[in-house]
């Protein structure tokens, strides 16, 4: 579905821009249709930058990205725009990704308006249908983001992201700001939607437990470089890179109380 070859992003500085600060350095990976790739790494490791390059919200400095056979970086603006509905993103913090002045219903309807997908009445029906798909009560359509809980806001962000029936969806730490029980709700919802819509997912998290639950294959990013990638089960069972091993140990340490009982 999507394939990256030697993708890098750097910011230049210094005399004649000779100093380069690499945020993402020479990353190659691929996601197959309908599968989930888990992207792990700490803050500042380049996870979000990499994800944004995959849907060309950030321009890569070097490398090649192929989306469903299309060379993404060769596209001119109008062609890229035509491709946008096929790839969507849900950001970490719904407080900054939902427009505070718009009602939740208007936010979810916005992609339909922009793409003129439906007449006004059909649009309203579609919004209600989307609300149902993500488990939001239709009454909430008239509310504004500040009146909703974190979980409800993230459901709305998800509804907006799937409104145009994308094929590829990026989830950038979608539950980092949510409580444990809400996190489980949102992520089971994502899994249901993925099956129903045959979505290809990029799931970003610094939580290896979550990556283990959510993804088929995974990649670990450390200081902009890919240190490990492969099948999730295999990596979690037998990590080979020292950094992945440290991450796994840290995750186990803070979850010591599980496992013992099993």
């Amino acid at each position: 579905m999507i394939e990256l070859t030697s993708v890098s992003k750097y910011y230049s500085s210094g005399f004649l821009c000779r100093k380069r600060a690499y945020v993402v350095n020479d990353v190659s990976l691929a996601i197959r249709k309908g599968e989930t790739l888990g992207l792990a790494g700490e803050s500042g490791s380049g996870k979000s930058t990499l994800a944004r390059m995959m849907i060309r919200l950030v321009e890569p400095s070097a490398g090649r990205i192929v989306f469903d056979g299309i060379d993404l970086l060769a596209l001119k603006k109008p062609a890229l725009r035509q491709l946008r509905p096929r790839m969507q993103i849900v950001f970490q913090d719904p407080d900054t990704s939902l427009d505070p002045r718009l009602t939740i219903g208007a936010s979810v309807a916005e992609p339909l308006v922009v793409w003129q997908k439906a007449g006004r009445h059909e649009r309203d029906d579609r919004v209600i249908e989307l609300f149902g798909m993500v488990g939001l009560q239709p009454e909430l359509a008239d509310r504004r983001p500040f009146e909703l809980s974190g979980g409800q806001k993230q459901r709305a962000a998800l509804a907006r992201a799937i409104a145009l029936e994308p094929e590829f969806l990026v989830l950038d730490e979608p539950t980092a700001a949510l409580d444990l029980s809400v996190q489980a709700q949102i992520l089971s919802l994502v899994q249901v939607l993925q099956k129903r819509m045959n979505l290809t997912l990029l799931f970003i998290s610094h939580d290896l437990q979550l990556i283990g639950r959510m993804s088929d294959s995974m990649a670990v990013l450390h200081e902009g470089r890919l240190v490990e990638s492969g099948k999730t089960d295999a990596i979690l069972r037998r990590p080979s890179d020292p950094y992945t091993i440290r991450l796994l140990e840290a995750a186990r340490e803070s979850e010591e109380w599980f496992g013992k009982d099993k």
Binding site: L180, S181, Q185, L187, Q209, R213
Partner: peptide, 28 residues
């Protein structure tokens, strides 16, 4: 308490963590 939670909420909270099955508590 973590090994043998008694209250249904505590049980639900523990069960919703990713390493313990990821079973969400319905509602909010």
């Amino acid at each position: 308490l973590f090994r043998h939670p008694m209250h249904p909420y505590t049980q639900g909270l523990l069960a919703s963590s990713p390493s313990a099955g990821f079973h969400p508590i319905p509602g909010m």
